[in-house]
Write a protein that binds this DNA or RNA. Structure first.
Lengths: 142, 142
DNA sequence: TATTGTTATACTCTATAACTATA
DNA sequence: TATAGTTATAGAGTATAACAATA
């Protein structure tokens, strides 16, 4: 099958295909933990921003309040995150649980392995270059 | 909000975020045509591989037969693609329609514009470098 | 009035499994 | 037996709109 020169030329398409490739590896690596890459990303953000609220978490992940709530529900059901009283009575302060702390390092280690394996075609330099370029794309405001 | 050093370091996460950014631009640009980036990709593949069947289309897009059929249904409903008799009685030969040919160029032009606009932070060189690295990731077999 | 969390609902995308007709 | 298409169904993931409590 011929991908066609238009698709070859479109950055968005190449990005989508690469994301699919990496995402499949990542999902497979995290499946034994009953968690997805997006949920682990949410857990890491909660750990690194203790006391943050659901709306802020959603903004960091580019999903809305309602979707953020479902992510938090999934993480609390697995005893990885807790909702504690927030800065006012409307707001939840999100915190990683002790159990979450116990398990997060191995999850990250597995994800890291999958990440490296999926991009094994790249040298260390190329990998760093690619990360820098991907970050640079997002410097433009939406 | 602090993304945290683990997320910063994971290629898969940076890829996901960049894909989201580009994808949002692309979806907005194609919305007036009633089509999504994935469907336009399918249409381009059909155009560039006339007579291909649904299973092959699915493989090119990394979705299964059933999902490929739904893509083809959507494209035929919009009179962009036709199912013609294939190499045997089980198989469809997919072809772009005359109407599809009439409309595809403007769709690609709009997608192209959105693609460029979303990655405006990159120089021409950086863009080419990024595309080469993204393609290289996928050279490893799954 | 605006914001936070929540609920209900719906839509898109995708996968699995089973069916049919062909090979 | 294997393959191509199809159908029915289910599961993620996300969005919108409306509501209650609070600011």
């Amino acid at each position: 099958m011929n991908e066609g020169k238009e698709l070859q030329r479109l950055l968005g398409f190449q990005l989508l295909m690469a994301e699919l490739h990496m995402g499949n590896h990542a999902r497979a690596a995290l499946a034994p933990f009953g968690i997805t890459p997006a949920k682990l990303a949410a857990l890491l953000i909660v750990r690194d921003n203790p006391g943050c609220d659901q709306t802020a978490l959603g903004q960091a992940l580019h999903v809305n309040r309602s979707s953020a709530m479902k992510l938090v529900n999934a993480l609390t059901e697995r005893d990885l995150v807790e909702r504690q009283p927030g800065r006012d009575l409307r707001t939840n302060a999100l915190h990683i649980t002790a159990g979450g702390r116990d398990r997060i390092d191995e999850m990250v280690r597995c994800l890291d392995e999958a990440d490296q394996a999926a991009a094994v075609a790249l040298s260390t330099d190329e990998r760093l270059q690619l990360m820098a370029l991907l970050r640079k794309i997002r410097t433009v405001r939406d």
